[in-house]
């Protein structure tokens, strides 16, 4: 954009990386039009310094094709809205620098989730269903909470551990990367295991392993996980999914003994 124009030919300002012509092959499809067939559409743009995929897509939409659908909110890897398949792998568009991409890039919507159109998918609908299925909220044992009472103390280390799993932004990358989920649509997915691991850690949650087993103790749950670990490898928040799923598996397996 303008930053690149300023730096050209100016000896006092460091010259940016060579300007590349980027080609984005985008899967276009509108499920609301049953007669439409999914097709690839190519867009060419000039790469700018520090450009992210999110910036590139906005430039395409503003300057070339206002009908292109994709999601974003925060632009900072916090909202988890802009996940898409970048050259076959799920990534957040806002956290993907074009400098890390080849000159030609293929973009597609996340698989598994309901397609809204082009690169936009309804992850929220599935996440809500998963939340309700796994009851991913605190189950306190007491009935009515006395809000005037001081909360129980928690060790900072434990709070840190809980917070670590709470960093999940529900972007859906782990589910889109999961081989099991691509074959079996009722699979809980790493995001669900992360939630269970988080509430299992929380001393305020009154649920026992028996209760958790009822939710994830079968092949749609933790025993369906085949440990391909793409979830762990693509997680934009670098959550320790591998160790958390292994931990849950050991705990749930112990329930069968």
């Amino acid at each position: 954009m303008s930053a690149s124009a300023q730096t050209h030919g100016n000896g006092s300002i460091p010259k940016p990386r060579s300007q590349r012509q980027l080609v984005f092959n985008v899967l276009r499809y509108d499920p609301a039009r049953p007669e439409a067939v999914p097709r690839m559409q190519a867009y060419k743009i000039e790469e700018a310094d520090s450009m992210t995929l999110f910036i590139a897509l906005n430039e395409i939409r503003e300057q070339q094709d206002p009908t292109l659908q994709f999601d974003f909110v925060c632009r900072a890897g916090i909202c988890g809205s802009c996940a898409m398949m970048v050259n076959g792998r799920p990534q957040l568009a806002c956290r993907t620098l074009t400098s890390a991409l080849p000159e030609e890039t293929t973009l597609a919507p996340l698989p598994f989730f309901e397609l809204i159109g082009d690169l936009s998918v309804n992850t929220g609908k599935w996440m809500r269903g998963m939340s309700e299925r796994l009851q991913t909220w605190l189950h306190t044992q007491e009935g009515e909470r006395d809000l005037r009472r001081i909360e129980e103390r928690m060790e900072p280390e434990l709070a840190e551990q809980i917070y670590e799993m709470d960093r999940c932004v529900e972007c859906g990358c782990c589910v889109a990367a999961c081989g099991t989920a691509q074959m079996r649509k009722d699979f809980v997915g790493a995001v669900g295991f992360g939630k269970i691991a988080r509430f299992r850690l929380d001393p305020r949650d009154g649920r026992s392993d028996d209760d958790f087993y009822d939710m994830i103790g079968d092949d749609t749950g933790v025993f369906g996980c085949m440990s391909l670990l793409a979830c762990h490898d693509v997680c934009p928040k670098s959550l320790p999914l591998q160790t958390q799923i292994a931990f849950l598996r050991r705990k749930m397996a112990a329930m069968g003994l």
Partner: peptide, 10 residues
């Protein structure tokens, strides 16, 4: 309540 066989089979 879920039975324990999925755990054992795993």
């Amino acid at each position: 309540a879920k039975n324990r066989w999925p755990a054992r089979l795993d």
